[in-house]
């Protein structure tokens, strides 16, 4: 079992003929994901390896039965790409693109509201369900099948956490990078809801960072609705206020968004919070008694 993606997932890659798009389409396919189509306007009829390229997502869905899209379109056009795949019937949309203007995402979210379409990202590494499907840019080989769900606002920090768990023999059910932007399609609470309901997930690792109040909201949700153990780490304990730390959403502004407040909120909700990222794998092992 897994959430969001599995062996039946059929992926259309938007921007498949670009450098990033082709590289990662191949890596996803090599992992075992069914990459059934690509889209690049004006390049319909071509092939990327054996994958047919279409001018529109609608045509790709019609001809190949794609149900999930993976987006590598430049920031100026990425919001349109999300709306195009939503209109074409994609049920899960993973947007890797970094640097989409905030107002563009406000418009996208207004359209997606109440449609049941699940957008992951933007500015994220994507989703992987080890042994089943990889719809994203993470290195597949560091993962291993197992019982831990993982949700994170970061990319490489997620790989670090996964790597530590895998070395200790602890596998993952599904790992989702929800993205580092202020406006994202899927938040911690959405993922916690899915992991809580997934019989294959026994516990959850949550990786947050400074900025916003998503971790505090997650803490409130966990104390009411999550019975599975949660282990958390918050990046940016030493970040200075008023500076944007790489991610558009990672900023302490007006005294809010601090790591210490997030850690305290999660601790109060019964979450095991590790202060040092080097201790994460060991903490999971201990909490889950693996």
């Amino acid at each position: 079992m897994s959430v969001l993606v599995n062996k039946e997932t059929r992926v259309v890659v938007q921007g498949i003929t670009g450098k990033e798009g082709s590289f990662h389409a191949r890596a996803c396919r090599d992992y075992g994901t069914k990459v059934v189509a690509g889209v690049t306007p004006g390049k319909g009829g071509q092939k990327m390896d054996e994958v047919p390229v279409f001018n529109t997502v609608a045509q790709a869905v019609k001809d190949t039965g794609a149900n999930t899209s993976l987006i590598f379109v430049p920031p100026a056009f990425a919001a349109d790409a999300i709306l195009e795949s939503a209109a074409a019937g994609a049920k899960v949309i993973v947007c890797i693109t970094e640097g989409i203007p905030t107002l563009d995402m406000v418009k996208v979210m207004a359209v997606l509201k109440d449609t049941g379409i699940r957008l992951i990202g933007p500015n994220c590494p994507g989703i992987i369900s080890p042994g089943q499907a990889k719809v994203g840019i993470m290195p597949g080989h560091i993962h291993r099948e197992g019982p831990m769900g993982l949700v994170s606002r970061s990319g490489t920090l997620t790989y670090e956490a996964v790597h530590q768990m895998t070395l200790l023999g602890i596998g993952q059910s599904t790992c989702v990078g929800i993205g580092g932007d202020p406006i994202i399609g899927t938040n911690f609470i959405d993922m916690l809801t899915l992991f809580q309901a997934d019989p294959a997930t026994e516990g959850v690792v949550l990786i947050g960072e400074i900025g916003g109040a998503a971790e505090e909201e997650a803490a409130a949700f966990i104390s009411k609705h999550v019975t599975k153990p949660v282990v958390a780490f918050i990046a940016g304990q030493t970040a200075p206020p008023g500076k944007r730390m790489g991610h558009a959403g990672a900023i302490i502004s007006g005294g809010s968004g601090k790591a210490a407040d997030k850690m305290a909120a999660l601790q109060a909700a019964g979450v095991t919070v590790v202060a040092n990222i080097g201790d994460l794998g060991a903490a999971v092992k201990k909490v889950m008694s693996y």
Partner: peptide
């Protein structure tokens, strides 16, 4: 990576 960079500072 921004998250790993922050964690490294910590």
């Amino acid at each position: 990576g921004a998250g790993l960079a922050m964690a490294t500072m910590d």
